[in-house]
Deep mutational scan, measured.
Amino acid sequence: MTEYKLVVVGAGGVGKSALTIQLIQNHFVDEYDPTIEDSYRKQVVIDGETCLLDILDTAGQEEYSAMRDQYMRTGEGFLCVFAINNTKSFEDIHHYREQIKRVKDSEDVPMVLVGNKCDLPSRTVDTKQAQDLARSYGIPFIETSAKTRQGVDDAFYTLVREIRKHKEKMSKDGKKKKKKSKTKCVIM
């Protein structure tokens, strides 16, 4: 069974824990209790493949930012979460993405942009803004509501699919490099 290491990042209060708990335990946590770091595991079937999701729910508070490099190193894919009623959390996505790329030393890291709290009427981040940002990053965008469960499975499952595509691409690139290195030079 394939294991996928997913990391949920975003500013404090955007609903990272609520999304994760909704996926794992099928219930909505409405009281806000700032996370330092929590880890969850769940076995699911995605596109006919049974897999184990190892999900790291991270601290959004700035005082825990020193811990970010460590979990970013171990993560295979990242859910970059903002709240649709919090423009600052949307603007912060850029910083999370840049930090992930720096730590992973790669421009090509599996990510999904997630606009959470889409059940709320007080939207300050337009869907088109988020779609445009995701398009500019070359990553999928999904709106979710941890409260109603809308888009929750889709967000995590899409990230797994992005990781699969990335692994497939990397193995193809690896095979191309191996083929090239088999060419021999004969000096007579």
Rank of each mutant, 00 (worst) to 15 (best):
K104F: 06
T124N: 14
M72A: 10
M72V: 07
L79A: 03
D119H: 03
N86K: 04
S106K: 05
A66K: 08
V125C: 13
C118V: 10
Q70P: 11
D126Y: 08
D69Y: 03
C80H: 02
C80I: 14
D69E: 08
S122V: 10
F82W: 07
F82K: 01
R102A: 07
E91V: 11
K101I: 05
R123K: 11
R97Q: 12
E63N: 04
T124A: 13
V81S: 04
G77V: 12
R68F: 05
Y64K: 10
E63P: 09
V114K: 02
Y71I: 14
P121L: 11
S106R: 07
D105T: 05
G77I: 12
Q99L: 14
V81F: 13
G75E: 05
S65G: 13
P121E: 14
N86W: 05
R68W: 07
D126S: 11
E98V: 01
M72W: 07
M111Y: 02
G77C: 12
I100Y: 00
M111T: 04
S122Q: 06
S106G: 13
V112F: 04
F78N: 00
D92A: 14
G75M: 08
V125M: 12
Y64P: 14
M67H: 13
L79Y: 00
H95S: 05
L113V: 05
V112D: 01
Q99V: 11
N86A: 03
Q99S: 09
F78P: 00
Q70S: 09
V114D: 02
S106E: 13
D119W: 02
G77Y: 06
H95G: 04
N116L: 15
H95M: 02
E76T: 13
I100E: 00
A83K: 05
Y64Q: 10
L113E: 02
S122M: 07
D69S: 06
C80K: 02
S106W: 13
R97D: 02
I84W: 13
R123W: 10
N86I: 05
Q70K: 13
R123P: 13
S106M: 09
D105A: 10
D92W: 04
M72P: 09
I100L: 06
V112R: 00
I100A: 03
K88T: 07
K101M: 13
G115K: 04
D105R: 10
G115W: 07
D108F: 10
R68D: 14
E107Y: 11
P121A: 13
M111S: 01
K88G: 13
G115L: 11
N116M: 15
P121N: 10
F90G: 05
A83L: 01
E76F: 12
E98C: 02
T74I: 08
I93P: 03
M111H: 00
R73E: 14
C118G: 12
R123F: 10
G75H: 07
E91M: 06
E98Y: 01
D119P: 02
L113I: 09
M111L: 06
V103H: 10
V81W: 02
G77N: 00
F78W: 04
Y96S: 02
S122W: 08
P121R: 10
Y96P: 02
Q99N: 02
V81I: 08
R123G: 14
S89T: 05
S89I: 09
D119K: 04
A83M: 03
V103T: 02
Y96E: 03
Y71H: 10
E98R: 02
I84C: 15
M72S: 07
N116Q: 14
R73M: 08
G75R: 08
R102T: 07
I93L: 08
S122C: 10
S89D: 04
L79V: 10
G75N: 07
T124P: 12
T74G: 12
M67D: 15
E76M: 14
I93K: 02
R68L: 06
L120Q: 10
R73V: 06
A66V: 11
M72Q: 07
I84F: 13
Q70W: 07
D105P: 06
S65Q: 09
Y64S: 14
I84T: 15
L113S: 02
M67W: 04
G115A: 13
K101S: 06
S65H: 05
I84A: 15
K104I: 06
K88L: 07
K104A: 08
F78M: 01
D108I: 05
L120P: 04
Y64I: 12
E98H: 04
D108G: 07
G115H: 04
Y71P: 11
V81M: 13
M67A: 12
R73L: 08
Y96G: 03
N116W: 00
S89W: 04
H94R: 07
C80F: 14
P121W: 06
C118R: 04
R123S: 14
F90W: 13
V112S: 01
H95P: 00
Q99W: 15
V81A: 06
T124W: 08
C118S: 11
D108V: 05
I93C: 01
S65D: 12
S65L: 05
I100P: 00
F82R: 01
I93W: 05
A66H: 06
G77T: 00
F82M: 14
S65Y: 06
K104V: 09
E63W: 03
D105I: 03
M67F: 10
E63R: 06
S122T: 11
Q70R: 10
V109E: 01
T124D: 13
N116Y: 02
V112Y: 00
V114R: 00
C80P: 02
V103D: 08
F82A: 12
V103Q: 07
V112P: 00
R73A: 11
I84N: 15
V109N: 01
M67Y: 05
N86T: 07
D69G: 05
R68H: 13
V81D: 00
A83S: 11
L120Y: 06
V114H: 01
L113P: 02
R68G: 12
K88D: 03
G75L: 06
V125L: 13
G77D: 00
M67S: 14
H95F: 02
I84P: 15
F82P: 01
C118L: 08
K117A: 14
G115I: 12
V112K: 00
N86P: 00
P121I: 09
K101H: 04
D119I: 01
Y71G: 13
V81H: 02
G77P: 00
S89C: 03
V125G: 13
L79F: 08
K117P: 00
R102S: 12
Y71K: 11
R102H: 04
L113Y: 04
E98N: 03
V112M: 03
K117Y: 15
M67L: 11
K117W: 15
G75T: 14
G75I: 13
N86V: 01
L113C: 10
N116K: 01
L120S: 12
Y71A: 12
S89R: 00
T124G: 12
S106T: 09
N116T: 15
D105K: 06
K104L: 12
L113A: 03
H94W: 07
P110Q: 03
D105Q: 15
M111A: 01
A83T: 05
Q99A: 04
I84D: 15
D126R: 06
C80R: 01
F90M: 09
G75C: 15
D69K: 05
A83G: 15
I100D: 00
A83Y: 01
E98Q: 07
V109D: 01
G77F: 14
D108K: 04
A66M: 08
K117H: 14
G77Q: 01
P110T: 03
E76Y: 10
C118P: 04
Q99G: 06
N116F: 01
V103W: 14
D105N: 14
E91W: 08
I100V: 04
V125Y: 10
E91T: 01
Q70F: 03
D105C: 14
V109H: 06
P110C: 04
E63L: 03
M67T: 14
R97H: 05
E107H: 08
D126G: 10
I84M: 15
C80Q: 01
K101D: 03
E76W: 14
V112T: 01
L120E: 14
C118F: 11
D105Y: 03
D119L: 02
S122F: 08
N116E: 04
I100C: 02
T74E: 14
H95E: 08
K117D: 09
L120G: 11
Q99F: 14
M111D: 00
F78S: 02
V109S: 03
F82S: 13
M111Q: 00
K104S: 09
K104G: 06
Y71V: 12
V103R: 04
T124Q: 12
I84S: 15
S106N: 08
S65E: 14
Y71M: 14
G77A: 13
R123C: 13
D126K: 05
Q70H: 07
